[in-house]
Simulated scan of single mutants.
Amino acid sequence: MSAQNAIPTNGVALLDFSASWCGPCRALSPVIDELSQAYDGRARVQKIDIDQHKDLALKMGIQSVPTVIVFKDGEEHKRLIGMSSKTDLQKALDGALS
């Protein structure tokens, strides 16, 4: 996966950069799944394993996981580093959608 494939040039996307060995990432995973369903048709929600996509993580400047980045029309709108609440993630998505 390349950055061009992961980041849509139009619309809103939430990319969850995580790793299977990361406890907070595993704790956040069900929240990301819920957001994927709740925002279906309005925003793309995708998990990206940094161990499988090292080039993309490096290009995006991921230094710790979990890191969630919300994009709007191909541009970074909001970056949340560490464990984030569902409310904070919803606010980031809603802000990008407005």
Rank of each mutant, 00 (worst) to 15 (best):
M1Y: 02
S2N: 09
A3L: 12
N5T: 03
N5E: 15
A6S: 06
I7V: 13
I7T: 04
I7E: 01
I7R: 07
P8M: 12
T9Y: 13
T9E: 14
T9S: 15
T9C: 07
N10C: 10
N10A: 15
N10S: 15
N10Q: 15
V12S: 07
A13F: 13
L14K: 10
L14V: 11
L14W: 06
L14C: 03
L15W: 04
D16P: 10
D16S: 04
D16Y: 05
F17N: 13
F17D: 09
F17I: 09
S18C: 13
S18E: 12
S18N: 15
A19W: 04
S20Y: 02
S20A: 15
W21C: 09
W21E: 13
G23I: 06
G23K: 14
C25V: 06
C25S: 14
A27K: 14
L28V: 03
S29C: 10
S29T: 11
S29F: 09
S29G: 14
P30C: 09
P30S: 05
V31Y: 02
I32G: 14
D33H: 15
D33R: 10
E34H: 11
E34Q: 15
E34T: 15
S36M: 08
S36T: 13
S36H: 03
Q37A: 15
A38V: 09
A38M: 06
A38P: 08
Y39N: 10
Y39D: 09
D40T: 00
G41I: 08
G41Y: 02
R42M: 05
R44Q: 12
V45L: 06
V45D: 00
V45R: 00
K47D: 05
I48D: 02
I50Y: 00
Q52F: 03
Q52A: 10
H53Y: 04
K54V: 13
D55E: 14
D55Q: 10
D55N: 07
D55C: 07
L56A: 09
L56P: 06
A57C: 02
A57M: 02
L58Y: 01
M60E: 02
G61W: 00
G61I: 01
I62Q: 10
Q63D: 03
Q63K: 01
S64Y: 00
V65I: 14
P66M: 03
P66E: 06
T67P: 11
V68F: 06
I69Q: 08
V70K: 07
F71P: 02
K72L: 00
K72S: 06
K72Y: 04
G74L: 12
E75G: 12
H77Q: 07
H77V: 04
K78V: 08
K78H: 11
K78N: 06
K78T: 15
K78E: 15
R79S: 10
L80M: 12
G82M: 01
M83Y: 12
M83D: 03
S84V: 07
S84M: 08
S84D: 10
S84F: 04
S85K: 04
K86R: 15
T87C: 08
D88M: 05
L89N: 04
L89P: 07
K91I: 15
A92L: 09
L93K: 03
L93E: 02
D94Q: 03
G95F: 04
G95H: 04
A96S: 05
L97R: 14
S98V: 05
